[in-house]
């Protein structure tokens, strides 16, 4: 079986290494980080597995990849300590934004319209919303736990893990000759080689409240971004995420944090007393069509442009990568062989 060098320890690098090792390749993973840490944008993700809600603005491909990836996470959870939470997800809108809810309902599938009684039967704390949309087939995971579990599995399967191993341009080229295949999953760090890759800034928060109980992600419709709250263990909640066309990040802006916090406050007034645990900022890598791609130059593959769909797309892309390497697979949906 071929030797494969995977670069990057975000969710796509980890998923590629996992699939390739599983099919018998001899995998080495190199990362400039210590694993999937705060330097990877996967660290800051929501972990919503919402292929149906995403269809409001994403192309059908995201739905296809998403459903496949969900099966992967479910399977991984059944054999590890990953928690795959299959409680579905909810969409609500403030009374004055009901028009947004109607169009969201029209643009998505696999949902049920809930009246007030049905809504509070699912989420008693959402008492102040008169209606909502329920997506029973959606799920969520804890992204940091998911990447930790994958990292652990890679070690267990004897993948060679080179941490804090920064590769400059020359060593990237050299490494290419040392292995049969090289899979570049560096996200935005690969921008110098993928000139059509751009950054989309995202800001998120973790808050703590012992007054609010939620069992599933709640998406609050907003005229500009999909804002959502994802329950985390120990009464923490992830609130995300903005989308701003920007290639660099320093800090979150006051406007963004205000918008995120007011979304939380609208979802439940008790969040006014919540503690702000963490404010996160990072840059999502995206191509012009906001769709992920596997780009191939001989035996060098790039897996990139996962945009806001890292956990939803990475396992499905990793499977295609392993098919390219072991079965010479080609599919135009995500693989552009002869770019440009």
């Amino acid at each position: 079986m071929p030797s494969v060098h995977v670069i990057g320890s975000g969710v796509s690098g980890l998923a590629c290494a996992y699939y390739l090792q599983k099919v018998g390749c001899d995998v080495t993973l190199s990362t400039a980080s210590s694993g999937c840490d705060e330097n990877c944008c996967s660290w800051w993700a929501g972990g919503m597995l919402a292929p149906f809600c995403e269809q409001e603005s994403a192309e059908p491909l995201i739905g296809t990849l998403g459903k496949e990836s969900m099966a992967f996470w479910r399977q991984l959870a059944s054999v590890t300590k990953l928690d795959y939470c299959a409680n579905g997800s909810l969409v609500v809108a403030p009374a004055r934004d009901q028009a947004l809810k109607r169009s969201f309902e029209r643009l998505t599938r696999n949902h049920q319209r809930l009246d007030h009684a049905q809504l509070i039967a699912l989420e008693p704390d959402l008492d102040h919303f008169q209606q909502g949309l329920f997506y029973p087939d959606e799920a969520h995971i804890q992204p940091r736990l998911a990447t930790k579990v994958l990292w652990h599995e890679l070690g267990r399967m004897n993948v060679i893990l080179n941490t804090e191993h920064y590769l400059d341009e020359a060593s990237l080229v050299n490494a290419r000759n040392e292995y049969d295949w090289q899979i570049d999953c560096r996200g935005l760090a690969a921008q110098s080689e993928l000139d059509d890759l751009r950054g989309v800034k995202g800001e998120m928060l973790h808050i703590y409240s012992d007054e609010v109980r939620l069992s599933r992600p709640v998406r609050l419709l907003h005229p500009r971004y999909p804002l959502y709250i994802v329950p985390r263990p120990e009464q923490q909640f992830m609130v995300g995420a903005t989308m701003i066309e920007a290639n660099t990040s320093r800090n979150a802006t006051v406007r963004s944090v205000l918008e995120l916090l007011s979304a939380a406050y609208v979802v439940h007034p008790a969040f006014a007393e919540a503690e702000i645990v963490e404010i996160g900022v990072d840059i999502r890598p995206a191509f012009n069509d906001n769709l992920p791609k596997i780009r191939r130059y001989g035996n060098q593959l790039y897996v990139n442009g996962l945009y806001r769909h890292g956990y939803l797309a990475a396992p499905a892309l990793a499977r295609r990568v392993s098919d390219i390497i072991t079965n010479d697979y080609f599919c135009t949906e995500v693989v552009d062989a002869n770019y440009p």
Binding site: R198, G199, K201, I244, E245, A246, N247, T248, S249, T253
Partner: peptide, 9 residues
């Protein structure tokens, strides 16, 4: 877009 030249792409 953000300020500065961050939104250049």
């Amino acid at each position: 877009s953000s300020r500065e030249k961050a939104g250049q792409h």
